[in-house]
Design a protein around this nucleic acid. Structure first.
Lengths: 397, 397
DNA sequence: GGTCGTTGCTGAAAGGTTTCAAGAAGATTG
DNA sequence: CAATCTTCTTGAAACCTTTCAGCAACGACC
């Protein structure tokens, strides 16, 4: 119970060049190019120690119910009963079986269980980007609801890659999971319908969809975009950048559409919104967009930017500040999602908040209903977003 | 909740109040108390539309290899060959089989495959906190290495909860995954050794461990703590808060120990480091710590804070700024992990950087080696952290 | 003393896949 | 043309669990 001791030992042990046949050593962490910050008090490097141990008998015997039954002197069916209907086994028998399990190190084979019983106790959430706190917050809501129902959650990360998304869908279907929650790259993809057609419930998260095949839980992105841009218009901005992309992502399209809607309602021309296209919804892409925006001559530069999500907004903000632009005086910024880090940013970020955890919880509840309730009706739940105004648009006034 | 016997039993008891009606509607998103920001242009709420559709024939026939074989007019073994050794099936036969699969909507039953073949194509990463960008970056490294090897990754989130961690370990062992990567709450837990003893490889991530049962990949946290505090000492700070907790988390203990080591080397008394204990490593807990620190009279308040991770540091920073403390003049702050948001914070954060992605990639590579190479030797890889100095300690000078 | 209900346990069947020894059909060789 | 190889294909066995009809033992009852 003294891990500090272990660490101590690690540091003291002489650097062993004596690794007989180690897997190729990892390259040392490359110094990040993005960060212009300096002052390395310690240089990066890796130490590695190998040990051939393979202690006596790694008991790879893998005891099964049969072995347990033999050891306990009961039949195989009884062992199964202990596992699945313990109340219908006499206490003494149960004790015998349980102690046999213990001493044999029995681990139930879930594949066989599922094959025979037909049902899995797992649901999966296939996320668009596990690095985006928005989605991990949604995931927390999912876990909450799943735990209440006695299910486990596997998280999968498509990382905005259509190929990976498809691979994971295949995998999950083959695993016969109880259901899949997904924030898809393209909610209209036909691939999304094949699962429910074959019996695996799918609930679409953060996209509204009404094809009769899925439930969906979403936040009104068009309204969110409209609210954001209305706010900027009311502050007097007449030339606004829309930072986001790629356009294949529905959230981006909807939020842009909402922005245009706001222009329309305000009687402003569509050209008031200038597209700044990004390759993904990440901080790094936001920095790139900042570079481009800051490079424009001041009289042609938009006076405000509406970003498709907070990661973009934070990157944009960071880059603009470091290039000497003042926020909001030179450029007002509105983000989207109101992730926890938005409020802690260099200039606290105005953002459009979504009920993240509730989104996940509701989606999971719909999934559970679909997979357990024969009278299930597909539903489309839409939540309303909420603008949170902070310094990045309002200033400190 | 993983299928422990007790949980199972609980679950099976028939639900007395059968719910023929749709799941209870979710409560509307509660307005967050933490944010003091205002200006709601749109109030939150939910719309819901139900549709009973249940289109004609949800083909839940679940065609199997047998059906495909019949449809294609070949034997069952041939279908399996198409699936697993396509090169040894004649092109024409293969085409027949493939089109039969297509038209029947065949989906391979992974449970059965795994039961028979014995092997899973899945590895899992059991994370300490999926909401911490540090771990999602590690996960990205894991995915990268796994993809290269043709494996899929399931992410699981213990959320710093020992019970959930144990449940997931059970579940993964029962699933017979190919291996488990884990950042454990307590690396010394005996539970961690039972899996490898029974044949499921386990690699410990972000903790050094040398028990002969696991590989481990870590960054030297003691050194990191030392480097961080040395930096503060060199800046003249003589009274520093250590913000972190709970103490059961090894990372916290090591980093604190390193800080004390720095004091020792500088000839300063141990009381120079004041513990500010938190309940978890989150932004919210960081805010709480900020509240407490800012509440101290200026002459008793530490002049600097070293936080066990960046989430704490960001929360602390946010709270201190909003309470009128100047950073770094009134309070210098050092974080840990150098997550992407650290550089974009209100005051860009000095932090101890770790090679996150490399950590994950290396861990996954070790796991793959362990599960495929009979001569595998357990290794302990240690990387060296790196201090990145920014405004939160140095100021703008 | 027979009948009936309970309670606890048994043993075989089933579930969908992979594997593998063996067979069939064609091609090649002497 | 027979013998030998090759190349494909086949069918049964095995993987481990759950389920379920049935059996044995026992007490209660008329």
């Amino acid at each position: 119970m003294a891990p500090s001791g272990a660490a101590d030992r690690a540091r003291r042990t002489p650097d062993p060049a004596a690794t007989p046949n180690p897997p190729r050593t990892p390259s040392p962490p490359r110094t990040p190019n993005a960060a212009r910050d300096q002052a390395r008090l310690a240089k990066a490097g890796a130490r590695r120690q190998a040990r051939r141990l393979r202690p006596g008998g790694a008991t790879r015997s893998a005891a099964g119910v049969k072995d347990v039954a033999a050891a306990a002197g009961v039949s195989l069916g009884t062992v199964s009963n202990v596992l699945n209907r313990p109340e219908m086994v006499s206490p003494t028998t149960r004790a015998k079986v349980e102690s046999a399990m213990e001493s044999l190190g029995f681990v139930r084979n879930e594949s066989a269980r599922q094959l025979r019983a037909g049902s899995s106790r797992i649901i999966a959430y296939l996320m668009l980007d596990a690095g985006n706190p928005f989605f991990t917050d949604v995931a927390r809501g999912v876990e909450e609801a799943a735990e209440k129902a006695g299910l486990s959650v596997f998280l999968c990360n498509s990382n905005e890659d259509a190929g990976r998304e498809a691979d994971y869908l295949d995998l999950l279907e083959q695993q016969r999971v109880q259901g899949v929650l997904i924030t898809p790259l393209d909610p209209d993809s036909s691939r999304l319908s094949t699962l429910p057609n074959r019996g695996t419930p799918v609930v679409v998260v953060d996209r509204a969809i009404d094809d009769g095949e899925h439930c969906s839980v979403a936040v009104d992105d068009v309204l969110g975009g409209e609210v954001a841009l209305t706010h900027l218009i009311e502050l007097g901005h007449r030339r606004v950048a829309f930072v986001g992309g790629p356009n294949t992502i529905g959230q981006v399209r909807d939020r842009r559409e909402g922005a245009h809607e706001a222009l329309r309602k305000a009687g402003l021309p569509p050209e008031s919104l200038v597209d700044v296209l990004t390759g993904a919804l990440t901080v790094a892409e936001g920095r790139g967009a900042g570079q481009r925006l800051a490079g424009l001559p001041a009289d042609r530069r938009p006076t405000a930017a509406f970003c498709a999500n907070d990661l973009l907004a934070l990157g944009l903000l960071q880059q603009c500040v470091s290039l000497g632009l003042r926020v909001p005086e030179d450029l007002a910024i509105v983000g989207y999602d109101d992730i926890e880090f938005a409020a802690a940013a260099a200039v606290p970020l105005t953002s459009v908040r979504q009920p993240r955890q509730l989104l996940g919880r509701t989606a999971a509840e719909l999934l559970l209903d679909e997979s357990s309730n024969p009278d299930h009706e597909h539903q489309r739940v839409t939540f309303t977003p909420e603008l949170v105004v902070r310094t990045s648009t309002r200033g400190n006034a």
